[in-house]
Design a protein around this nucleic acid. Structure first.
Lengths: 336, 336
DNA sequence: CTGTTAGCGCTTTCAA
DNA sequence: TTGAAAGCGCTAACAG
């Protein structure tokens, strides 16, 4: 007969079962340095713990240490596409391997601000997609957060360490088009405002590549995810005095809209207009023509973030970000 | 001069500042029922708390109450598509409105099992996408979890409350095709094994609709997200003695693969083969032809889940699931 | 109505 | 090497 309400197994129970003091249990289970424990005792404790099915209370440990082993990643409501999903999965696995638990919280649309979240979780580190304002950072520190990492950012500032160099995505896009002989490039900017943090650096990279190649700056149009919006942009680009012959899309979805818009406008891809996407989402190769795009090495990126964050946690200080040299690859298909 | 390490403001600080006892602070801040507090005292406490920027320590409250105000949603690595993203966003907002914090954890690929997660978080409720085995459920209960809700499930069992009736998606798909005059239907099953929990009920719905319409059971083929795989399936369907004339795709991405495969195989859509998708992802309307699909009302679904879970938390018992009558809508476009 | 007090389960000095 | 004891910050009996 199992009791209705399970009683929690505590370290005292383990201590009693093993015939030692609670502190000894703690020492054994935490492998506390500079505490040598005889093998017999150690085994008795471990056995007792296993027999009782003991799991330490994270709440108690958190209360005592003032910080949990949780890493909190704050994401905006919009960008949960397959690319972010992949990165999040890699991050989760990576942090797990070093004993940290990654959880994700979707920001916005909440009555209580995000602050409630880190009070509730008391994470060791917080990962955000865009810069946190100094006030918020202060409340985080007060809640025990040791490390604040900004993963992406339109405007790199003081606290923006660990920022992924998304500008390089735009750079690679434009370089690919320039190498193919294009001298007038358009940029298809995403419509949802929440994507600004991602879009700005990418566009910046395109600008840089154009400048470097000595061609005109990209002609930017906002393109929503429907064929009409894309067709309008395409007509604008082709109607210019110096018509755009190739377009960098913010990502593969916008690129898909461009392909649909071109079909609607009777414009041939890539002959009349070349298109290049970004992110290499699974459906990119299903487009007609298949999308040329920039692939992101999410696993490498996750490794880098996990490494940098754990070092910062250990040192108590942010370390220099690892060189993110080869995170991106141009995947050439028929559309550009 | 701000001190390097912020000292946490505790309820004692607030009590001292307000000139009352700690318990009074707790009563005021928690609006404890059956504790009447004079307005003057209440205001003094509230003022002091605000002045000091007091935020209660969630860890301490969790330790005391044995459970936090966090709801943990466990998702598999794969299905983080735009549909799940939307649902998660709605859920987050919904739980936030009732004072609960939703965080998401991506399961799998971890060295330490998921159990580490609920020990780390001590959530009030856990939401999973597939059934949890009894052992795991026991460890959750021991960790203080009050309510375990399964959102989706291939095999509804005892603990599977709150299951979304995805079978209805398949039902609507098939009914739409039957109404259009099709008498031989194919089913494009997704390739990643992690999607089984979603795919099974959908397929079941298609089977039910076929049976009800008195036509042959659906011919199931697994279709990966590439044109070749889809083309092979299409050739199989069309090469049958009694050829398939319409296909229900597991979701819109598989449907997009089907469209690409048809193009490769020289099969016209919808004339030679009708296709219907599911989920109504943003790019569904960008396909050529635009995808007929089943839209999901994520907001309504989130409302239902939040309502059911909070009731269960209050009652200490699972309540009957709300009627999920009109979660789904058939969106007719040109492909079927 | 307000204050005192006893823990929740754990870590970590300090003594034995 | 092991044990006793002091809290971390909060809640909720219970006493005043």
């Amino acid at each position: 007969m199992v009791p209705k309400t399970q009683k929690r197994v505590t370290s005292s129970d383990v201590a009693r079962e093993a015939g030692v003091a609670r502190s000894t249990v703690s020492y054994v289970l935490n492998r506390t340095p500079h505490q040598t424990i005889p093998d017999g005792t150690r085994r008795r404790v471990l056995d007792a713990a296993a027999r009782l099915g003991y799991t330490p209370s994270a709440a108690a440990r958190t209360l005592k240490r003032g910080r949990s082993d949780v890493v909190l990643c704050i994401v905006k409501p919009w960008p949960l596409g397959s690319a972010s999903g992949l990165l999040l999965a890699e991050l989760t696995a990576g942090f797990d391997a070093v004993g940290l638990t990654l959880v994700t919280h979707i920001e916005g649309a909440g009555v209580r601000g995000v602050e409630a979240v880190w009070n509730e979780i008391a994470p060791a580190a917080v990962l955000t997609y865009s810069p946190v304002d100094p006030d918020a950072e202060r409340t985080m520190r007060a809640a025990g957060v040791q490390c604040v990492a900004v993963l992406f950012s339109g405007e790199p500032d003081g606290s923006a360490r660990f920022v992924r160099p998304d500008a390089r995505i735009g750079l690679l896009q434009a370089q690919h088009l320039v190498a193919a002989g294009h001298a007038r490039i358009g940029y298809a900017y995403p419509e949802p405002p929440t994507l600004r943090d991602f879009a700005e650096p990418r566009l910046e990279g395109v600008r840089a590549a154009c400048a470097e190649a000595g061609i005109a700056a990209p002609e930017v149009r906002t393109v929503a995810l429907d064929a009409e919006s894309a067709a309008a942009a395409i007509e604008h680009w082709r109607g210019m005095d110096d018509p755009v012959t190739a377009v960098c899309a913010y990502n593969d979805e916008v690129a898909q809209a461009l392909i649909a818009g071109a079909r609607l406008a009777g414009v041939g891809i890539p002959n009349d207009l070349a298109v290049i996407g970004a992110d290499d989402i699974p459906t990119a190769r299903l487009a007609s023509p298949p999308l040329t795009t920039i692939a992101i090495d999410h696993a490498a990126e996750a490794r880098r973030i996990v490494h940098d964050v754990t070092s910062a946690l250990r040192e108590g200080v942010a370390v220099e970000a690892t060189d993110p040299a080869d995170l991106f690859t141009t995947v050439v298909r028929e559309s550009a």
